[in-house]
């Protein structure tokens, strides 16, 4: 059980590392150029991995509807925005605001998709997150 725990923590660590590196690249180039390199380098690495391990294009993949591919372009904007913001408000603020935004919008998406939720926990969670966002805002005006 310790192994999966380490793996999950490392995955989170790498999210932070990726944003830090892309943020640094954006300082020298631009957020969109940084996002381009992030995707191009990632694509190259995954292509090599897929060719080595096999199963890059698994059976059934060709049946995916076009909108399943919309995640890529959204990711471009996501990485560009993160790279722009991190040099301006710092890594901690970027991380917690992105996490907060992801959680609150995730709850909204769950509501739209009518996914089962525990109402009190979800409601309280959203309130705590919004309170945290307000705390960062008061700091911004200082």
């Amino acid at each position: 059980m310790t192994m999966p725990i380490l793996v999950a923590c490392l995955a989170g660590l790498l999210v932070g590392l990726s944003r830090q590196l892309n943020g640094r690249l954006a300082v020298s180039t631009s957020p969109l150029i940084s996002s381009f390199w992030n995707h191009a380098v990632g694509f190259a690495a995954l292509t090599v991995l897929g060719l080595v391990v096999g199963g890059l294009i698994p059976p059934g993949a060709e049946n995916a509807p076009w909108h399943a591919y919309v995640g890529g372009p959204i990711g471009v904007v996501f990485v560009a925005a993160g790279s722009w913001v991190i040099a301006r408000i710092g890594a901690v603020n970027t991380a917690i605001l992105v996490i907060g935004g992801q959680m609150v919008s995730g709850v909204l998406l769950d509501l739209v998709l009518a996914a089962p939720t525990t109402l009190w926990a979800t409601g309280l969670g959203v309130i705590l997150i919004l309170a945290g966002v307000v705390v960062t805002q008061t700091q911004a005006k200082r």
């Binding site: 909108h67 399943a68 591919y69 919309v70 995640g71 959204i74 990711g75 904007v77 996501f78 925005a81 993160g82 722009w84 913001v85 301006r88 408000i89 710092g90 603020n93 970027t94 605001l97 992105v98 996490i99 907060g100 935004g101 992801q102 959680m103 609150v104 919008s105 995730g106 998406l109 966002v133 960062t136 805002q137 700091q139 911004a140 005006k141």
Partner: peptide, 23 residues
């Protein structure tokens, strides 16, 4: 830091939700 940076970061989290959904 300005308000717009904070709002952009929060809004970016929403993009992440959509991205994870489509991926």
């Amino acid at each position: 830091p300005r308000l717009i940076h904070f709002m952009a970061a929060f809004g970016t989290g929403g993009l992440l939700t959509l991205m994870v959904h489509f991926n």
